[in-house]
Design a protein around this nucleic acid. Structure first.
Lengths: 195, 195
DNA sequence: TGTACATCAGTGAACGCGCGTTCACTGATGTAC
DNA sequence: TGTACATCAGTGAACGCGCGTTCACTGATGTAC
């Protein structure tokens, strides 16, 4: 690969990084192509040398950001296994730190409502990533000896995403902290007495 | 009150009804003032005789739609009490019927991500309505003999909203039905063995 | 190795469009005498 | 009861603005001989 192609590849990564930040902070409609490109140190026109449309960028960014977020969360659970791993991930996900710093976290709470109205391309990207996340959680729940571990994993993911999105929407109210704590406890209780 | 004031009041209700439908179907950014007014049988300009800004309309509509949705759900649980009431509400909320007909349901799954970025006015409206919904659910959980009933209520609400929003975003994938079912079962298990 | 031509990532201005909001206006309703 | 004036809900066109996308152009990199 020549120097030209390498430069292009690096530009593409800067675009995805910029889009990742903006998507987490402002959602899909709030992340304009012009602002994404500005964040990547370029001007609007260049965008279409990298992506055929905004929808395509959103699909790719969602995939990228979800994988990144999943890796960060897994790292925060460290060497734990089974129920302890799931509890550690839930604690990190449903933390004030995560609520107050969208740009470093999971892109879902900021985009979930909008994804439902996006092209199939975007929804398929989400479906694949959610499927993998559910598999990862289900594995730990199985270690913990739970039945129907995949269904439990999907319910735990729903509670985490719903709880964090709700806590963000309620910021400024006493309910916000309460929702985070309530969801954390709820998940912990479901796993009480498991290894 | 004269005929003029009555007419105005009826216009206001038509605006709120139109905004309610559009908010549930297209979210906040997708419900334009012009389209809301068209749905109410009027032209754009008249809007500002009823509301000082779009944010104000959104706050009022959210309140109105959340109350309406709460009443519908309560009706679907009928005369049930305690754990049975909560299970019936969760079944109705996390149904394919509700997932596939946003316009007749809860406005939260379609707007949650966006509300976090709205004015304090909108977020306060949400906080009040969520507070009341939590109180209503907590009452039934207390009847069922659960400890920390208010926290459990907030967690159940988070799971319902998160699960339905996720199921809508995943529409077209096999995961969509699975998420609905998983969240329903998860809530039922939490209440297993309660009256 | 040096020269001529081809490629194409990125620029910057422009496109049509829909947004929230403003405003001069109209005409039916309400009030004063 | 009848007439003259005031009010104000709603109209329809316009405002400035930001959106996603297009396009003629540029200049550095790559290729051919």
């Amino acid at each position: 690969m020549g120097a030209k192609a390498e430069r292009k590849e690096r530009s593409r990564e800067r675009i995805l990084a910029s889009a990742g930040t903006l998507l987490r902070e402002k959602g899909i409609s709030g992340a304009s192509v012009a602002e994404v490109m500005e964040g990547a140190g370029m001007t609007v026109g260049g965008f279409y040398a990298h992506f055929p449309s905004k929808a395509s960028l959103v699909a790719e960014t969602l995939r990228d950001a979800l994988r990144g977020s999943r890796a960060t969360l897994a790292a925060s659970a460290g060497e734990r296994r089974g129920a302890e791993w799931v509890k550690a991930v839930a604690r990190a996900y449903l933390s004030r730190q995560h609520r107050d710093n969208p740009r470093d976290g999971c892109p879902l709470p900021a985009t979930l409502s909008e994804v439902a109205r996006e092209d199939a391309e975007v929804r398929e990207a989400l479906a694949e990533e959610i499927g993998e996340a559910a598999t990862e959680v289900a594995m730990r729940l199985e270690e913990a000896g739970l039945d129907d571990s995949r269904d439990e994993a999907l319910a735990v993911l729903s509670t985490m995403v719903g709880g964090l999105a709700l806590a963000r929407a309620l910021k400024g109210s006493a309910l916000s902290d309460r929702v985070l704590l309530a969801c954390r406890r709820h998940i912990e209780r479901r796993l009480a007495g498991r290894e």
